[in-house]
């Protein structure tokens, strides 16, 4: 996978920034010609994960990059925070599990909406989540 363009980065420190992440992801998704359903899935996943960065991670950054793997174009989004980290990843990825009063669908649901999902977390250090969606 190679980066096919400059990454765009948004600092996420408020509700408004979550809206900005949605708008940026939408713009890039249209530019790489994702289908309408895939655009909708990716923007929804980005909204869930950006909100997690804000609410659970105490804020952080979101980086959106156009990528290519030779045959296909896609988008990679990296959500990074220096928050408390996730002590039990399996539990956090279970539908319906939440510590924040939400529905517990953010992490598990977002994973279902993208093609690639990687998570790197350390207690006391923070969480980085990388997702990729490819054109079909």
């Amino acid at each position: 996978m190679t980066a096919g363009g400059a990454a765009e980065r948004i600092a996420v420190t408020s509700d408004q920034d979550v809206v900005r992440v949605r708008q940026l992801v939408r713009t890039v998704a249209v530019a790489v010609k994702l289908s309408l359903v895939d655009q909708t899935k990716l923007v929804t996943a980005a909204s869930e994960l950006a909100r997690n960065t804000l609410v659970y991670g105490g804020g952080g950054t979101v980086e959106v990059t156009r990528v290519e793997n030779g045959r296909r174009a896609g988008i990679q989004i990296v959500f990074a925070d220096q928050g408390p980290g996730i002590p039990d990843l399996d539990l956090a990825l279970t539908d319906g599990y939440t510590t924040g009063g939400g529905l517990g669908l953010g992490l598990s649901g977002a994973r279902r909406l993208v093609d690639e999902f990687a998570i790197d977390t350390a207690v006391g250090k923070g969480t980085t989540i990388s997702v990729t969606k490819w054109c079909r």
């Binding site: 309408l36 359903v37 655009q39 909708t40 649901g109 909406l113």
Partner: peptide, 14 residues
């Protein structure tokens, strides 16, 4: 509700 939104919501688990 738009069709793409309905598809996404259900896949999200909602």
């Amino acid at each position: 509700m738009r069709p793409a939104v309905a598809i996404t919501l259900v896949e999200l688990g909602l």
